[in-house]
Amino acid sequence: MLRISLDLHDKIIAHARQDHPDEACGVIAGPLGSDRPQRFIPMENAARSPTFYEFDSKEQLRVWREMDDRDEEPVVIYHSHTMTEAYPSRTDISYANEPGAHYVLVSTREPDTTEFRSYRIEDGEVTEEAVEVA
């Protein structure tokens, strides 16, 4: 299960809405081993595309180092789908390389409601999990 604060939940949605129709992406860091997402880090989508996202490689190095220095890890890795449902695509699954992370997907295809779902992706296998916003 993913436990996330309302504030962080809303920040993900705001980022996704802001970048729509392109996909938005980012990370929420938390203390190592805590499973608590705490520090919101919106990332640039280097692909700037409505159908693809990719972290900018330089920005990723900087952010990953910073997490390392602060004894944090990527607790949540999020991105948006702007035309399809909030479910991991085949591409999402094949590039998912953080088995410890909660992969959050939001869908901005409907203008008034934003789907918000979370998954574990490990060895190509997707497991949806409950989301508790508190």
Binding site: E23, V27, Y53, Q60, D92, Y95, E98
Partner: peptide, 11 residues
């Protein structure tokens, strides 16, 4: 030398 898997995906 640092190795990092890219974070990427798409629908």
């Amino acid at each position: 030398v640092t190795v990092l898997p890219a974070v990427a995906g798409g629908n």
